[in-house]
Design a binder for these strands. Structure first.
Length: 573
RNA sequence: CGGGGCGUAGCGCAGCCUGGUAGCGCAUCUGGUUUGGGACCAGAGGGUCGGGUGUUCGAAUCACCCCGCCCCGACCA
């Protein structure tokens, strides 16, 4: 490709509305442009990278025994009504009617479609197991699209669905995918971590997320310094230090205008951990739909709302209004678990606690000397607190650490959550009808592009790993004389013949402009062809990262191949 | 959905408070000079100032409504 013909509009200034570095650089380097909120064009350079990432994903999926297919983006409402998600899936599901008034939606995921397909085609256990995948655009009408490709509404995803005759077989495929994901993210040169995860709305049992470690990540993950335990904070368990209270009688204390934990604690001159924090929620979905409930955690802990949502079997919870709090006998700012006319959930870290201080459900008053067992005997005990840094690991004696992560992959053992309602049946060895057991495995392909940039950049711009760079080499001609142009063109042509994915920067631009653009766009190797180098027969090879070296004109082709091999070798470590 | 901010040329911004018919840098085009780290000179093109309504002799500027975008929050008793 000649740069003079390349559509790659680079920007000198950083667009004002781009916050994170990947968004800024992808925009500046001319890889993407915004169409509307959360929706982007992939320009030629961006598409090249996207295709390369897809290529690696495909290779590894195929190697793992999966088969590619392609499902539609538009899906009929009937499928979703059958699976029960037409009601469950919120406003993220973009619904519309076609000209015949037929209800449809844009696919945010494809369990329904694949199940419908399989329910028609699957007959015998002899066809199983089967793992089918696609690389497709998904649309989710996100509450808040942000950070460019990181959280878009339309995005590219690889999703795979496996079908099995039994759960042992599913477990084996789950492991197979777990390993495959490690290979994929390793090939992309990412620093990542697999973590145990909450299954969320998709349902099922076991589940792991794959997180690229980056400060700009939207997720918090907890991992042990001493063993391999790692989990999303939405699920992570850990042991907090023990609260040593003294058992005693219930005693009311006056705490005028002190409602926040810190204020009450400092007013009473006690530690935050001796307080009992009581939060009131309104539940949506599940058996408690529409009810108000109370949840208690220690004053120095934070309630993990995903954990609570799961414990409640709810689809969503939200903070109760002042009236709701009143309706169960509480008073905002001074709520305590005793005497409330609603179910009370208490964090397991304080199930046997003594001598805590709680709200009295009376204005300006707290109550000291609380014994959870004695005073809140009907409470439901559950793990509700969010793991904190320096908690003790529950499986070894290490301490927990927290990191930010970008979720780029998620695998699930779904079981029969979808195959049951969608009637994905087959005849087993005994001739009986059985429901297929499923797994599903996603990778955010376009998000990966952003995640790689988050990890691979410096003050000059992007620094793509060779594996997914839009071009391997940029041949930059410097100066305007004929000899230079000819030598550069020859080098470029030879590289192309040698199978190298080369760009020829033949523009009539000053050297500085060409160098800056190559660096911004993150091309791994630049060959500088100028009259200075031609005269001394020492052309420069500049890796995007690392020291420049020189080569004679005759040996430049081989030198470039060697340099690329060196870069590749370094990256595969 | 709640809170905050923003919307003026492709990008980055000024002008708005105190109304008088739009400006700067970069980019673009033409000519010339230049060419190993984002050149210089001269000239040029490009904006219904997000949209609408209103106030006014007159609106980018004031008022109201709408739209779009960005950030934060949705953790609190």
């Amino acid at each position: 490709m000649r740069y003079s013909k390349l559509f790659s509009p680079t920007l000198r200034d950083t667009p004002a509305d781009a916050e994170v570095v990947s968004h800024q650089l992808l925009l500046r380097a001319g890889f993407i442009r915004r169409v509307t909120s959360g929706v982007y064009d992939y320009l030629p350079m961006g598409l090249r990278v996207l295709r390369k990432i897809e290529g690696i994903v495909r290779e590894e999926m195929n190697r793992a025994g999966a088969q590619e297919l392609l499902m539609p983006m538009v899906q009929p409402a009937e499928f979703w009504q059958k699976s029960g998600r037409w009601e469950k899936y919120g406003p993220e599901l973009l619904r519309f009617k076609d000209r015949h008034d037929h209800e449809s939606c844009l696919g945010p995921t494809h369990e329904e479609v694949i199940c419908d397909l399989m329910s028609r085609e699957l007959r015998s256990y002899k066809q199983l197991p089967m793992n089918l995948y696609q690389v497709q655009n998904k649309f989710r009408d996100e509450i808040r699209p942000r950070f460019g490709l990181m959280r878009g509404r339309e995005f590219v995803m690889k999703d795979a669905y496996s079908f099995h005759a039994n759960s042992e077989c599913l477990a084996a495929e789950y492991k197979n995918m777990f390993d495959t994901y490690h290979r994929i993210f390793n090939r992309l040169g990412l620093k990542f971590r697999a973590v145990e995860a909450d299954n969320g709305s998709i349902g099922g049992s076991s589940s792991h997320e794959f997180h690229v470690l980056a400060e700009s990540g939207e997720d918090l993950i907890a991992h042990c310094s001493g063993c391999s335990y790692a989990a999303n904070v939405e699920k992570a368990m850990a042991i907090p230090h023990v609260f040593q209270g003294t058992a005693g009688e219930l005693t009311e204390v006056s705490t005028p205008n002190k409602t926040a934990v810190e204020d009450v604690a400092s007013f009473l001159n006690v530690a935050n951990e001796s307080l009992l924090k009581t939060l009131i929620f309104k539940v949506s979905g599940g058996e408690l739909d529409g009810q108000t409930i109370a949840a208690c955690v220690r004053g120095d802990d934070q309630l993990q709302d995903v954990k609570l949502t799961r414990v409640l079997g709810a689809t969503e919870i939200e903070m109760a209004s002042d009236e709701d709090v009143k309706s169960i006998g509480g008073i905002v700012g001074y709520v305590g678990p005793v005497g409330l006319s609603c179910p009370v959930y208490i964090d397991s870290a304080i199930k046997n606690a003594e001598g805590m201080i709680m709200g009295s459900n009376k204005a300006d008053t707290h109550t000291a000397g609380v014994s959870i067992n004695r005073d809140v005997p009907n409470a439901i005990i559950a793990d509700l607190r969010q793991t904190q840094a320096n908690d003790t690991c529950f499986s070894c004696h290490g301490f927990m650490e927290l990191s930010r992560g970008i979720e780029v992959g998620h695998i699930f053992e779904l079981g029969t959550v979808y195959s049951q309602p969608m009637e994905v049946m087959f005849q087993d060895e005994n001739g009986k009808r059985a429901v297929a057991t499923m797994g599903c495995y996603g990778i955010g392909v376009s998000r990966l592009m952003a995640a790689v940039v988050e990890q691979c950049n410096d003050e000059k711009g992007i620094a793509w790993p060779l594996n997914i760079a839009p071009f391997d080499v940029s041949v930059v001609s410097v100066g305007k004389n004929e000899a230079v142009a000819e030598a550069a063109a020859n080098i470029y042509n030879d590289l192309i013949k040698a199978g190298v994915n080369a760009l020829f920067d033949d523009r009539n631009e000053r050297p500085g402009v060409k160098f800056k653009d190559a660096e911004l766009m993150g091309i791994p190797l630049t060959i500088v062809v100028g009259d200075r180098g031609l005269e001394s027969d020492a052309l420069e090879l500049k890796p995007r990262l690392g020291e420049a070296t020189e080569s004679s004109l005759a040996g430049i082709n081989q030198a470039a191949l060697d340099m690329l091999a060196t870069i590749a070798a370094k990256e595969s470590n």
